[in-house]
Amino acid sequence: MKLYEYEGKRLFSKAEIPIPNGKVISEPLQWEGKAVVKVQLLEGGRGKRGLVKVTENVATTISEFKKMGYNLFLVEEFIPHSKEVYISAMIDRDKKEPIIIASPEGGIDVESATNVKIFEIPEERGVRPYDVTMIEKYLGVNGLDKIVKGIYNLLLTYEAELVEINPLAITDRGPVALDSKVILEDNALYRHPDILREFNRENVSDGYVELEGYVGIIGNGAGLTMSTMDLVKLAGGEPADFLDVGGGANKEHVKESIIRVASNEKVKKLVVNIFGGITRCDEVARGIVEAYKEVRKPIFVRLVGTNEEEGRKILIENGIKAYEDPLQAIGDAIRS
């Protein structure tokens, strides 16, 4: 679960990481002096989209953003600074330990940074003074003790996938986190009800990912679904989404999934790819037929598994194209 910038900064405060003084609001606000107004969105790239503004006139800026359809803002004091750096904490999948990632190139997309260094800090011993001095030396700045310990502790305490400060401003009064990007691990949220309550959030992730294309994609199993998207692309189509119905999918779940994907206006047709082991194909077919009555968009179904012949028969009787071969199903879908 990705947090809003202001939520991440609340966690920063708890961890004693300095942040600018600021206010979260949804209406224009009177503010003395120079300030930064930032639209609160879960998507990244706000800077590039002009949704972060340095202004002397906060109320006007907010009114302008509101006209563009945005409704939640973080207004912060402007922080003069001499330098910006990048720092984040995550779990290294291969080392199986927490790591700190640092770059002296702050404020930019870290993927395009040319100098990035990883510092492994094993959980067993935690952050030690020499970790901090090595990171400070690499970044060419001082006073990072609270920052390094802060992001490291947040990572482990709240079970985050990523705790990122980009940029971290270096000022006369020390480092200040100008932005926050915190992603909490969905599987561990049940251990942090206090955070969900404090931010009034609930975990609604169901694995659906929307893409840019027009071919709706449903599969069983993450790898097979991803592979189906790729096959659609290779056949000349553009996938519209990723949706994995999982193993042993029942009729209702299949029906809801198809309606979900088909309700995306961009979707012109759907490809359903089911390779069932224990999945009952007749059950899946009935779910597809019920959904088809409501969505009325062409559906191309590859259906293999227990009772597959029965399943394909049910589909064909109801005017839905059914296949054993996924490439044929996808090919027909693209050509249709």
Binding site: E111, L162, N187, G207, V209, A222, T225, M226, S227
Partner: peptide, 24 residues
């Protein structure tokens, strides 16, 4: 070898908890 995810967007989790690209 075969690799799934040619069309997967960055920083989006594709079903599996492990199928996500951070920091490129």
């Amino acid at each position: 070898a075969y690799i799934a995810g040619l069309t997967a967007p960055r920083e989006k989790r594709m079903g599996h908890a492990g199928a996500v690209v951070y920091m490129g």
